[in-house]
Write a protein that binds this DNA or RNA. Sequence first.
RNA 1: GCACCCGUAGCUCAGUCGGAUAGAGCGUUUGAUUGCGGAUCAAAAGGUCACAGGUUCGAAUCCUGUCGGGUGUACCA
Length: 566
Amino acid sequence: MQKIKTLLIEALAKIDGTDAKLLELTAATQLAFGDFQTNVAMQHAKKLKKNPRELAQEIIQAIPENDILQSVEVAGAGFINLRVRPEVLGAEVVQLGQDTNLGIPQSGKGQRVVIDYSSPNVAKTMHIAHLRSTIIGDAIKRLHLASGYEVIADNHIGDWGTQFGKLLVAYKTFPKPEDISEDSIEYLEKLYQNFNNRAESEPELQEQARAELVSLQKKEEPNYSLWKQFIQTSLKEFDEVYQRLGIQFDTVHGESFYNDQLQSLVDELKHKELIRESEGAQVAFFENDQYPPCVIQKGDGAFLYATTDLATVRYRIQTYQPKRIIYVTDSRQKLHFEQFFSIAHRAGWHCDMQHVMFGLMKFAEGVVMSTRKGAVIPLRDLLDEAEKRAFQVLEFVDYPDDEKKEIARVVGLGAVKYQDLSQNPASDIVFQWDKALNLQGNSAPYLHYAYARVRGIYAKHQEKFPEDSLENASIVPQLEIERDLCLYLLQFGSVVHRATQTCKPNLLADWLFGAASRFAAFYNQAPILKEESSAIRHSRLRLAMVFSQCMKQGLYILGMDTLERM
RNA sequence: GCACCCGUAGCUCAGUCGGAUAGAGCGUUUGAUUGCGGAUCAAAAGGUCACAGGUUCGAAUCCUGUCGGGUGUACCA
C-alpha cells in the first residue's frame, strides 16, 4: 500500500541519518502481527548506533496524523507492525476489483518478448516429457501478456537434422508398417524405431542415412518433397494436441527456417573474430576457459545446433527488437545456452536472454524416457486418462452429460497443468499417474471448486435478492478471516509481477492455492446469504466477487479455464 | 578431473534479492447433527532445513569446505 509507505517515508525524513531508500514494507508474516511490517529500524540501528526498539519508537512517533492507520507498534527485536483501518482496507479491495488489470503492474508496456518453448521434434509423437516445456512456456507467455508485454510465442520445432536421413531410408526401403495410416505420426515414429532397431545389427544403414540427408540438404527430389510431407503430418498432429491444451503460437519457425542464414552467420562471427579454426572446425572459445569450446561449424563444413540457435537469436533481434528472449527447455541444455548467450552478447546482439530450465521427467524406475526405443506415454493418453478420472468423480451428480464432459475436460486438463506449474520446475520429476492426476488437496480441482462455489453464491444471491445492487456496496472486513482475505487479495498484482520477472509460474500457483484456502475458511466462518444485515451481506459478497475475479484471472494466466459449477 | 543443479516432516514439495515460533499437500489420528455445494472445513501428531565452519543484531536463505544424488563436459540436438 503506497499510502502507508508515503507516511513512513515522511516519518523517516524527520529522523537524521535515515535512508528512505532502505524502506521495505511487507505483508505481516502472521495475522497476529497486524497487516504490514517493516524492518527499517533494525536496518538503521547499527549505523546510527541506536537501540533498534528505541529507533522504531522514534519512527512511529514521527508518523504524521492520518486516517489510514489504526495502530502502529514496535515488536520483537525492532519490527514495526502496522494495522490499517478496516474501511480503508476494504476500499482498497473495492478499488482492486474495479481495476481492469486487477492490480497487476503493466511493467511490460511497450516492450516485446520472444518466448521459445515446446519445440517438439518432427516425426515423433508428443509425449509426457514435452509437457513441461509446453505448459510452463505457455504460462510464461500468459504472465508476460498480463504484465503488458507484447509477446511473440515461437515454436522452434525440430524439423531438420540427422533423423530425416534415417526416416528417408526407412520410408523408402523398409516394408511398410501395417495397420497404420501413412499420414499419421505413428507411422513415422514406427519407421524411426524400426530404423534404430535394425541399425544395431546393420551398421551400413547409418551410412545410407547420411547419404539421404546430404541429398535432402541439396533439396533433391523426392527427398525434399517427402521431408515436407513428414512435417505436414507432424504439424497436423501437434496442432491437435495444442488445441486440446489451449495453446497457441504466434510463429512456428523451425530449425530449417534458418538454414540459408547459417553460412552468413559463420562469416559474421569470423569477421568479428569470435570464432577461429581449431582441429579443422570453426570454434568459439571463452575467456579463462569459463566454458568448454563451442563448435560452430564442423570440419566437414556442416552446421550444428549452436549455429542454428545463434542464427535464430540474430534473426529475432533484427526482426523483433525484443527486450527479452526466453527459452524453456530441460536442464541438460544449460551449458549450451550459456555458451551461445555469451557468443551472442559478444557479437553485439544485445537483449536479455534467459534460459528457463526444468528437470527431467523420469519413470519410477529412474529410466529417462526415450522415443528411440518406444516405451513412452503419449500426451493424448495422459489427457484422456485425466478426463476419465475427473468424469468418474461426477458419476452420481445430476448434470446433463454434455456439461459433465465439459467439467471433466476442464478439471482433467487443469489437473495435468497444475501438477507441472505448481512446483519449482528445476528439480527432476518422477512420473506417477496418481500424482500427475491428483484431484485432492493442493491441486487444480481445489481451485476450480473454490471458484465454482463463489459463483454459486453469486447466482443464488441474484435469485434471492434480485433488488440488491453491489454497485455502491463497500467492503468493511470485520472478522479476522475477512481481513486476512482482503490483505491476501491485495497481493495479487505483485505476485503476478514477480512471477513474470522470474519466469516462475509456481509463485502464482502458490498464491492461487492460498487464496482458495482462505476463501474456504471465509466461506465457513462468514455466511453471506444467511446474513441478515444487508451491509454485512453486501460487504462479504463484494469481497467474494473480487476473490472470484482474481481467481479467474490467475487461473487464466496459468492456462486454466473456470467453471460456474462442478 | 572440471563446471552446473539439487539435498527442508514418513512421502511429494513450497519458502532461497537475510527477518519474529520453517510452511503446504498426501498419509496417520480426531472432530464438523444433508452444508450459502463435504472435490470442503476445524484440529492433533510429525523437523539438528545433508554436515562443519564463517559473515551479522538476525541465516533454510549469503560465503568457504565436506558428504550424498543428478546433469553436462568441441565436431548430437
